[in-house]
Simulated scan of single mutants.
Amino acid sequence: MNDLPVDHFVKAQQFVQTTHRDVYPAIDPTQASLSQKGRVVIITGASQGIGARAFVPSFAAAGAKAIVLVARSADKLKDVAELVATSHPNVETLSVSTDIADPASVAALFDKVKEKYGHADVLVNNAGIFKAIAPIKDVDHVAWWEEMTLNIRGTFLMTQSFLKQLPSPETPARIVTLTTGAAYEVFPTFSAYGMSKLAVFELMTYVAVENPNVVAVALHPGMVDTEMMKDMFKKFALDTPELVGGVGVWLAAWDGLDRAFLSGRFVTSNWDVEDLVKRKEEILAGNLLKMDLNATLGAAQFGL
């Protein structure tokens, strides 16, 4: 790792010609075209890291009607809510201490959302843990399963409850779910994190197929220096929170620009969104940015 350049992962995962490591005009959440006016946005993992530093400020800057702040720590959520009240006093916040891996806790959260707002329009599945780091033969099985449980079950429960609360099957909605490059590339000792993030990436694929009213995207945030960033990757962690938050707002926008072609697919924050739009037809025709088995299958290849 020490010999690799700081932009190694940006270039290794590059899909479009232009890449970014900071916010840029097309994803500036303050522009009118990306307005979240009148929308209710739920953000999990909102008490710290990318949730608190990227998604909450960006959706607030986009003028959301309300942001539902979700995490386990009530005290930390209070601090985030106070920052929003200071920086964007017209944006409501609802802080709900929630264990997203607990069905009863998630049900209580959505009861509060329904009581106050009827339903939410945007869900950002940001919460996750990255702790069970060891080879499979050595990793603590309890820690491994806890990571899988929170990252997969928690994302599933939040997504299912969000979908159930939509008023009708035609109600438009947006889901942005955090994934990672380790979802498709093997990093030894990262099995729990990589497999769990692959599972939630695939979850978005199912949501997209089953719910044409929902744009559901798996977003790799790039490399942002947060509490979850491991020392071996810190030199590469030059992506700003504003970049990730801006891409999240762009994916969840309601400006009439087609984003459905990205539904059920993998996107990286570093990729220029205007370049992505230019490749729309190619992405759809080739069914790109999805997981697949790297093999030619089918009896036809043998003339059968």
Rank of each mutant, 00 (worst) to 15 (best):
G194Y: 04
T179P: 07
G194T: 08
A173V: 01
M195K: 04
V176G: 03
A183C: 08
E202Y: 00
Y193K: 02
S168P: 09
K197H: 09
A173F: 01
Y206R: 13
G181K: 00
V215M: 01
I175Y: 08
A173N: 04
G194L: 04
E170N: 13
V207A: 06
K197Q: 08
A182M: 08
F201L: 15
F201D: 10
Y184H: 14
R174M: 04
F201Y: 13
M204D: 09
A199P: 12
M204L: 09
A182F: 02
A208G: 10
V214Y: 02
S191V: 05
T205P: 02
L178M: 15
T189S: 10
P169W: 11
Y184W: 14
L198E: 10
Y193F: 15
A182K: 01
V200N: 01
S196A: 14
T179C: 14
F201S: 12
N213Q: 13
V200H: 01
A199Q: 11
K164G: 03
V200L: 06
Y193C: 04
P188G: 09
T180F: 00
L178T: 14
A192N: 08
V176R: 00
T177A: 05
T189G: 03
K197I: 07
V207K: 00
E202N: 13
L178K: 06
S196E: 07
M195D: 01
F201N: 09
P212G: 03
Y184L: 11
A192Y: 06
Q165D: 13
E210F: 01
V209M: 12
V186K: 11
S191W: 02
T189Q: 03
T171L: 02
E170Y: 06
K197R: 13
E210H: 07
P212E: 04
T180P: 01
V176I: 15
A208C: 10
I175E: 06
P169T: 11
E170R: 10
G181A: 05
T179K: 07
A173C: 06
V176T: 02
V176L: 02
G194S: 09
P188T: 12
K197P: 05
L166R: 15
P188H: 11
S168K: 11
P188K: 09
V209I: 12
T171K: 01
L198P: 02
N213W: 07
A199N: 13
K197E: 08
V209W: 06
E170V: 05
P167M: 12
F201P: 02
E170F: 06
E210A: 15
G181D: 05
G194R: 06
V186M: 12
E170T: 15
E170M: 07
T189P: 04
A208P: 07
A183E: 08
Q165E: 11
M204S: 05
A199H: 11
N213S: 15
T179Q: 08
V215W: 02
P167T: 11
A173W: 01
V176S: 03
M195N: 07
K197W: 08
K197C: 07
S196F: 05
E170C: 02
S196P: 05
A192W: 05
P167A: 12
P188W: 09
E202G: 03
A183W: 04
